[in-house]
Design a protein around this nucleic acid. Structure first.
Lengths: 201, 201
DNA sequence: TAGCGGGGAGAACGTTCGGTCTGAAACGCT
DNA sequence: AGCGTTTCAGACCGAACGTTCTCCCCGCTA
């Protein structure tokens, strides 16, 4: 126990707090869980919590940033593992599908948060908008390599399928949702790829 | 003021309470608005509220039933106004699009509620499931008249596009969301219609 | 060894939550 | 007139909310 010296700097308690909050907020929602439960599960006292986070809202923002980083990492890895943009898009779709199939899947953390924070000026809402913009931009860039002329519409179509799949994934049979989603994405990539090769010919 | 005689029977206060709750819950979420605000906006006292609704949860369930009835009425009208199933499907899509374009659009009341009530056994959650099942069944019936062999998959695809459009409608430019949605539905109906006529030939 | 300071512990703050209770006006009905 | 229901008005409850407070321990440097 006396080894801890340099690794204490990012604060072990803070990390415990954040990972606990991430689990609970995602599983049970945000407004319906209080600070009490989070600090109890993280085995931390109130004062410690408020030393690391100015308010509960700040914790929520940090929670969404955490999820954003994880998704970003997963998608970057999926893109890096494939040589063509079409393969990358299908890999991203497969990553989303795998997420939906996960036990304890509770939908998109950002869409769920948006339902609880309608105020557009609220920091949490802006975090959601920023995440979605990043996601759309990433897809648009990839789509541009598959179908240059219709990349915007194709990327929006992809996002729409994803949003629907993420929303329904915990309200319907996940297997059927994933099936519908993957078929939709495959059709999307195929059609736009065909259109591109046709216009290039 | 002495004209009121027979229309008081379904309780004017109760109706005022319900319509107020419908507006507020949809606009601002459920957990973040208290009973105090609803009774204040409805100009009703606490005792009156608890005379008509055993608890806040009951009001939430009734709120969702109210929205369900409105959607049901709108879709039934859209279906009745067209002779072919394909036209009915497009009319339903247009009704959804019109909803998204509405000022003050805040997404799907049921998807938003699902984000706040993750517990599957909760009456509110079951109300959501029931509504979605009705919606899917309605679409499946219509799709069966367009593409008999693939009606299930086509209906699920339609629902997925709708869910995505409803979720994104208040997070992106509604015009672009509606555009993407309608293109998707048109493609869906066209493709399944073609497949049907091809297999029939 | 003395002293400093950040992090942890836990009591306590005032407010708001959902929900109950009393008591008295205002109404429709027979 | 008399009855029953509905509504109003508001005090009240215990619990939970987000937040702040003081105290103390522990590892650091001088």
């Amino acid at each position: 126990m006396t080894r801890g010296a340099t690794e204490t700097r990012p604060s072990e308690a803070r990390q415990r707090l954040l990972s606990t909050a991430t689990q609970i907020f995602y599983a049970d929602g945000i407004h319906s869980v209080g600070v009490d439960r989070i600090i109890a599960d993280a085995k931390v006292t109130r004062a410690t919590f408020y030393r690391h986070f100015p308010s509960k809202d700040d914790l929520v923002v940090t929670y969404l940033q955490e999820v954003h980083q994880m998704e970003r990492a997963a998608f970057t890895a999926a893109i890096a593992a494939h040589s063509t943009a079409a393969d990358s898009l299908l890999a991203i779709a497969e990553a989303i599908a795998a997420n939906i199939r996960t036990a304890g899947f509770r939908g998109c953390a950002f869409l769920n948060a948006a339902a609880e924070f309608p105020d557009v000026n609220h920091p949490v809402h802006q975090q959601i908008i920023a995440h979605r913009q990043w996601f759309l931009d990433t897809l648009t860039t990839l789509m541009a390599q598959v179908a240059e002329d219709s990349s915007d519409a194709a990327a929006r179509h992809f996002v729409m399928l994803r949003d629907g799949a993420m929303a329904a994934g915990c309200l319907f049979d996940p297997a059927l949702v994933v099936d519908t989603f993957l078929r939709g994405v495959e059709g999307l990539v195929r059609i736009h790829g065909q259109r591109e090769s046709a216009s290039a010919a």
